[in-house]
Write a protein that binds this DNA or RNA. Structure first.
Lengths: 109, 109
DNA sequence: TCAATAGTTCCATTTTCCTGAACTATGGGA
DNA sequence: TCCCATAGTTCAGGAAAATGGAACTATTGA
């Protein structure tokens, strides 16, 4: 369960992590939630079922990119975003991506 | 030589295009230049030589993501950024990415 | 018409991604 | 304490995508 220190967060990794429609949807939900979310919250994304092995990989990519922090709490894994930290390193980046994601989601609806 | 209309530009494609270190460097250079740049400007990026077939693919990815516009001018291909258009669709996105790229480049120096 | 320059396309190799199946970890009964 | 259910991870092989050398196309100038 590796979490990079904020200084080791790479733009390349952040953009790669969020260049997947499932991952950006997961991250936007976690970033927008006021409490920690578990992996199983996302057993389906955009009306498409995601196998739990894939889901586990997606969380790993987000975690290792430095975008989320995952912590075991009993039987489940609680995920929170690291938006504030990442914003300190790359000002405005996360906000712009989340806004862009919202714009697309709105257009699709 | 396909260029998507601005409404067809996808966040996923933009982030994917810029999640590669070579491509983000190319794009930052084109976005920061005050005139069109040709492909051969980038026969090496970050002191690493890039084969021209790879370079051609990288330009194709940037073009099809909607980030640049390429136009043949005689024997060469002139590339300009579509920053203004993309900024109209996803406000602040490109600026934040370019700034983040500059922050990393500065830290590496 | 020929040569030189600038890119593109093709294709084989390498790398990465996806996901079903098996596995691990934790907590709650009986 | 033992077993079961839940939550997630790891593994492995098949599918998809990236890489780059070689051959090809397009344009210009001599």
């Amino acid at each position: 369960m590796f979490h990079p220190s904020i200084d080791d967060v790479r733009l390349e990794a952040v953009l790669h992590a969020l260049s997947d429609p499932v991952r950006v949807a997961i991250f936007a939900a976690i970033a927008g939630a006021d409490c920690a979310l578990t992996c199983s919250t996302f057993s389906s994304v955009n009306e498409r079922a995601i196998p739990k092995s894939s889901l586990s990989q997606h969380f790993k990519v987000l975690r290792e990119a430095g975008l989320i922090r995952s912590e075991r709490q009993g039987v489940e894994m609680r995920n929170v975003s690291r938006c504030a930290e990442v914003d300190g390193r790359f000002p405005g980046l996360i906000a712009a991506i989340i806004q862009a994601h919202a714009i697309e989601a709105k257009a699709a609806a």
